[in-house]
Design a protein around this nucleic acid. Structure first.
Lengths: 153, 153
DNA sequence: ACTATCTTGAGATAGCTTATCAATTTCAAC
DNA sequence: GTTGAAATTGATAAGCTATCTCAAGATAGT
């Protein structure tokens, strides 16, 4: 049952975000293509990916899908509010923020494990700091680096 | 008087951090060179720089100072705990964390202005989140992106 | 179906950072 | 102060990620 429900939830999530994408495309006189649909459905099944990763993942489904198209499309998702880019090391990670809203990261410097979290109180304090400085926040990035329980032995 | 005191404080800061660097070098069998001294003193006078920026700044003092040396040295400072690298857009910013401890950033997406801030309450909540997930924080990064008062018109 | 417009794919290109290596400099031991 | 092993530098090549170019192809409104 859990699996069945999860399947349904993933499917409805895809339908919902496909609609978000469609609206964004319509508003900007852009077009819905086979590639954009393909990349969106694959993207929504994961928490965070790099363009390179998706390139290899999707090579099976469409061997001719170009890397440039993936970059272009992931950047498009950012503009549509479906994804969020995050510079991590030398690469750019694209985070899936569509279904769970914005989330922050707790990253283990030992094994690279990434734990996601949300904290309303922190978000509220961020707004406070921004207001105090005359800013209106559009987005933010919070990453905590440390050692997880396992890597501390 | 203010200027005189600021001058003294910058000087003592440089002496102090030079000592931190010396200790790090000794511990790792590295050597103190003219270039490392030069780059450190220039680095400590600023909040955050890119390697390219320092390259141009220091060209006046030493026209033969190579860009690679600046990258190598700034990375060395990171290992010594004097600097902290931050990937911003396509470039890497090196932040001066030696004299004021860790600080976070409020960045205007309109004009690029960077305002620094510290907020103990946020830091405390970060510790809380980490502990809850079995992590021990080593460092963190918090960046708030938005529009400053001026760019909102 | 037609057509203007957008998109794609493949490779070239750009931009930032690191690797290479011979020549030079540092520093501890003499 | 010399000496010599080891680290560092400078100049440039190479590596990587991301974007640009443009002819060929796909999309969507009419």
């Amino acid at each position: 049952m859990g699996v069945f429900q999860a399947g349904l939830s993933v499917m409805s999530k895809i339908l919902k975000e496909m609609d978000v994408l469609r609206q964004h495309l319509a508003k900007h006189q852009l077009k819905l293509t086979r590639q954009r649909e393909l990349i969106l459905t694959a993207f929504l099944r994961q928490e965070h990916v790099t363009a390179e990763t998706m390139y290899h993942q999707l090579a099976k489904k469409d061997p001719h899908l170009g890397l440039a198209t993936i970059y272009r499309t992931l950047n498009l998702f950012c503009e549509a509010g479906i994804a969020q880019a995050r510079h991590f090391g030398t690469q750019t990670q694209y985070d899936n923020i569509s279904h769970k809203g914005h989330h922050d990261h707790l990253i283990c410097t030992g094994c690279g494990t990434i734990v996601e979290f949300e904290n309303c109180e922190i978000e509220r304090l961020q707004e406070e700091v921004a207001t105090k400085n005359g800013f209106v926040i559009q987005t933010h990035r919070l990453e905590l680096y440390g050692l997880c329980a396992h890597c501390r032995h």
